[in-house]
Every structure is written in C-alpha cells, then in structure tokens.
Design a binder for these strands. Structure first.
Lengths: 162, 162
DNA sequence: ATTAATAGTTATACTTTTGTAACCATTATT
DNA sequence: AATAATGGTTACAAAAGTATAACTATTAAT
C-alpha cells in the first residue's frame, strides 16, 4: 500500500464520516414520522428485499445487530404481518425469515413515503448532477455492501455472541 | 421531470436507504469504543472542520439537531477543550464556535482510530475499486452536502424552535 | 417605550438504541 | 451418555437521541 493509496483511504473515510449524519437525520426522521416501524426493523426489510430468506443470526450478522435485538425487531415486523417465520426442517434451532406479499407491498409504499422530503431536494438538481448522484451512490453501495457486511467472509466472523 | 429521471431518483433513494445502516453501525460502534465522545458531538466536529466558525444555531441547523441538544454536545466538546466559544461583537446574543488547535489534533487522531476497522476492509480493495470508491464518495458527499443541509436556503427554514 | 422576535440555556420526560448476562432447545463432539 | 457449541429468546441496565416548555439576555419592530 503506497502513500497515494493511504491518502485516498483517509479521504474516503472522511467522506463517509461527513456523509453519515446527513443521511441519518433525514432518514430516521421521516421513518419515524411516516411509518409505525422504527429504523432498525426497516433496515431488516431492506436486507430481506435483497436476500429472500435469512435466518435470525444472518440478519444480525449482515446488519451488525446483536441477536436479542433482532428478535425484537422481527417480532414487530411479524406483528405487522410483513415477514414470516419459516422453520428449518434440517435444523430445528434455525428460524428463517422471509417477507410476505403484504410486506413487499407495504415496504414499497413506505419507501415512497419516507423518501418524499429527500425527493423534493433531489428533484431540484440538474440533469447532470442527477446522473452523477445516481452512478456514485450505486458504486458506493456496491462496494460498501461487499466489504461492510460480513456475509462474504467465513461464518466464523459472525459467531460471536451477537 | 420525465419518467427516466423519476426512476433514477427512486434508485438513488433506495441506494441511500441501503447504505445507511452499513455506515451507521460501523461508525457509531467504533466512536463509542475508541473515544470519550458520543457520535453526535463528533459530527459537530466534522461540521466544524468544514466550516471554520459556526454559531450554535447554525450547528443545529446544518445537522438538524434541536437547539437544547446542541448546547449539551458543545458543552462536552468544550470540556475536552476541543472547541471554544467566540462572542460576536455585532450581536451579543450569538455565540460562535470554533475548533481549537487541540481539537484539530485530537480530531485527526480520533478519525484514524475510528477508521481502523473500516480501513482494514477498504485496504483489501484493488486499486481500481479504490479509485472508484474515492471518486464516488466524494461526489455523493458534495451533492448531498449541497441539498441536505439547510444552509443554502434562506434562514427562514432554520428558524423553528430547534 | 413597549412589544415582538431571536439566540441560547436549563430542566424534564421520553423513546430509541445498545450492550450483556442468563436461559432453553437443539445439534455436534468426544 | 456426557459435554460443548449453536440458534434463538427473555429480561434488564446503560447510553444516546428527541421533544417540549419555560426562562434570560439581547436585538428588532411598531
């Protein structure tokens, strides 16, 4: 790793640190204002929309949520009938979670609702900046999703008490 | 706003929603583990490193933090001697905040500390992906910083009781 | 001069998030 | 068969963020 790359990494991290509160406030605020769900359970929905079936542990692993917290969040989603438990025939300890049809429909609407404020801001951008934002968020997402979740590494990294 | 642009906006928002928990867990966890500060006060430092001087209200405005909360967070930073109060000669109601030398040095070290875990992951990327991540985080940051903070709009949008 | 508005603080209550320890049921190991 | 490890739950405590009302000091408006 040479000097130029080290400087790049510093800058990347600085960008991410700066970016986070901007996203955080906007998202959590509108999630709370416009849905009955809390941010955490919504992120589980997001993860389930990318991975059709996940066990409780896998959810905790991918989102870095301690296991007891996963139980609570999923309970809320089940109460709303947005996800369902599937019992694993091969290992009766495992409980798999999958979105229901209702969950997918609701999630779609929720995403539109919570994005309303942000949408109004984004709509003011000119075509060129819109394209840039589109491409760059996609790239950040792809790369971070690759390195930040632990799903690509052996299960051992997720076997802690979380 | 045509259909293609609408679809782009949907996708951008989906990307940001997905991105958020990935950043959130990693950052807040290491902030707690490696500093005496809480995430909120660190975000204030981040904002002050981009805007040399900000009043209490402007801080709350830019980070969407209610005013009483700003007081508490800044108090913590002052206790650590990382920021200082400057009294405005033109309007004695206003208290401006600026990072101290110590604050800048500490902040630099803190950033390195909390980025350690993330750095290890980013370092595994090949040169090409590193460059892409560098450019795209920069672009997301520039554009979001433009539209997500209220600093570009008339003060009226920040004069609520926050 | 009086009133209204602004900047910031104090105090309080509340919700959300986070962390941890102990526990049960099931499966794997020896 | 006994023990250890895993997946998940329950329960509780601590930390952080959020919201609101009431207050002081200062400035602006009439």
């Amino acid at each position: 790793m040479n000097d130029i790359e080290t400087v790049s990494i510093d800058k990347i991290i600085e960008n991410l640190i700066y970016l986070h509160p901007l996203l955080s406030k906007s998202l959590t605020r509108s999630i709370r204002a416009k849905t009955n769900l809390n941010p955490g359970s919504l992120y589980i929905l997001g993860m389930l929309s990318k991975n059709e079936i996940l066990s409780m542990s896998e959810i905790g692993c991918k989102l870095s949520i301690p296991k007891p917290h996963v139980t609570g969040q999923v309970d809320k989603l089940i109460a709303e009938e947005m996800v369902e438990r599937l019992f694993d025939p091969h290992d009766r300890r495992i409980i798999n979670i999958r979105m229901t049809e209702k969950g997918m429909e609701d999630f779609k609407i929720i995403k539109q609702d919570i994005s309303k404020d942000m949408r109004e801001r984004i709509e003011k951008l000119d075509k060129q900046k819109l394209d840039v934002l589109f491409d760059s968020t996609q790239q950040v997402r792809d790369i971070l999703s690759e390195i930040m979740t632990d799903s690509h590494s052996p299960l051992t990294s997720c076997n802690k008490n979380q």
